[in-house]
Amino acid sequence: MNALINATLFPPKKLRVATTSLAGCFGCHMSFLDIDERILKLIELIEFDRSPLTDIKHCGPCDLGLIEGGLCNAENVHVLREFRTHCKILVAVGACAINGGLPAQRNHLDLRDVLEEVYQTEPGLSHGGVPNDPELPLPLNKVHPIHEVVKVDYFLPGCPPPADAIWKFLTDLLAGRTPTLGHGLLHYD
């Protein structure tokens, strides 16, 4: 496996990787875990910073940031900016990060109508009105893919990207090759 490391580009210290899920379903993270036993090889090459796997709350300086999900609220924007500030390479992982995905299908509706429908008109949830606790992040008028807000270096499509695609992508990247997926690994669904 050490052969994969391009010693000049990546000195033999572990690559620090952060991951997060913004407006996503954690499906991309689950698919990441589907690399199964290969994660043992991977863990020789990388160490995790902020990630649902570590429970580290804030991202420190990292080599690689993997972003699942698009931007549907203010919190998503803060997290994305934190990642962009600290990660040398930022990757949009999965359909939602890349084109907004399922959450973006609310974009042809006015957010005010959505909130009104959910919290005021619809029976069941209508008791308290639209939640206004300052602890809660406010939703954005529209859902955005992450490349509309920060510069994104790589894109890894799929809903979710298959484990083999994630593995191919990461091993390419770790070896200093521009990642390519090819037939069977590149898909949008």
Partner: peptide
């Protein structure tokens, strides 16, 4: 509005297949 995961044509779609052929990684 091309949301492949929820499209019945996915896998049989010429737009999608052409985008794969040309290595389109993002919009």
């Amino acid at each position: 509005n091309h949301f492949c995961p929820s499209c019945e044509k996915s896998g049989n779609c010429a737009l999608q297949a052409t985008a794969y052929e040309l290595n389109m990684m993002s919009p």
